[in-house]
Design a binder for these strands. Sequence first.
DNA 1: CGCCAATTCGAGGCAACCCTCGACTTAGTT
DNA 2: AACTAAGTCGAGGGTTGCCTCGAATTGGCG
Lengths: 185, 185
Amino acid sequence: MSTASRPLRADAARNREKLLAAAAALFAERGLDVPLEHIARRAEVSIGTLYKHFPTREDFAAAIFPERLAALDVIGEKALADPDPWHAFAGYLDDLFALQAQDRGLNDVLARDLPNAPEVVSACHRGAGHAEVLIARAVEAGVLRDDYSIADMATLTRAMAQVIRDSPGEWRRFLSIYVDGLRAQ
Amino acid sequence: MSTASRPLRADAARNREKLLAAAAALFAERGLDVPLEHIARRAEVSIGTLYKHFPTREDFAAAIFPERLAALDVIGEKALADPDPWHAFAGYLDDLFALQAQDRGLNDVLARDLPNAPEVVSACHRGAGHAEVLIARAVEAGVLRDDYSIADMATLTRAMAQVIRDSPGEWRRFLSIYVDGLRAQ
DNA sequence: CGCCAATTCGAGGCAACCCTCGACTTAGTT
DNA sequence: AACTAAGTCGAGGGTTGCCTCGAATTGGCG
């Protein structure tokens, strides 16, 4: 099977880039549900052209989020390199939600269970992998309550998504209270 | 100013009741955003009749939620009667979110800042009043972190609304972790 | 019974968003 | 310069939900 499509014509390539830039900006500002018409308008391209390049919203997500999700790996590595298990775990949470707070679209991706693009899914799995190690380490060190699991982190992520959405100034405080509740004992 | 409207005709009164029942059921099941057409359909009444009785969605909320919000007073009184300041406070949270978990519409009312009906607003204020006393007592007894405030509870309420929405089975666990983080020290 | 104001009905206009398709334009090749 | 495949355009059809308004119906009174 040759998925090999011939190179885009110059104008098409230009429009594709304009669409991606517009979508990236609007997803970040307004979230994943921004009307496709708005993306077309900001890209100064017709709605028909938008559909030519990205037949579904998913296609936009698949083109945009893998790159953003790379940040997940960065904070994951950073935390894994931290010798203090508690600091590593708590720092990871902080970095993760700081990321979500910066990008409304990313917040949506991580909170609702959205896009099926394999690259998005696998990035999330990698993130979960990091988190699992961080949890295991902290539990083993006796600093994290020993029944804590990835599922709890998923719940937390959705809760934090909500807090970030409607009180962006208060998520750190909310998180710190929750995290206090996580220490062993 | 005589707001005194003459009594409804028998058929009108009947339809009004059918509409209220339908709206109450659908709000509880599906949340505040349920299409008004669905309410009319379930009430077996035309959309025009619906608008005759309840010109806006707010009017439905104003007719339905004050009664439900009375439950807030009940759990507030119950908590205030509890001599143990910590148990009172924690119990109040538990009761409050159990309420939200039972009724999707109530969950929406308490989470988003919605309906302007004075009776709804005042019920929420009464609830906040209870909460403030419970917080003050627990802080004074030295069992609750002394920087905790009503604003934190509002944030918590919105976060819990989200958790209840997408993992109804896990809100108690989530809450108990958070609450552990609230104890003094 | 007969009347009329109150009530009911639902088609239809409006708006937002989705997506398609055929006519037009143009990049890039020969 | 001429040709054509690739690309662009946007009107328009579909859907869902909101809300209105005039015609048809009906409860309850005299």
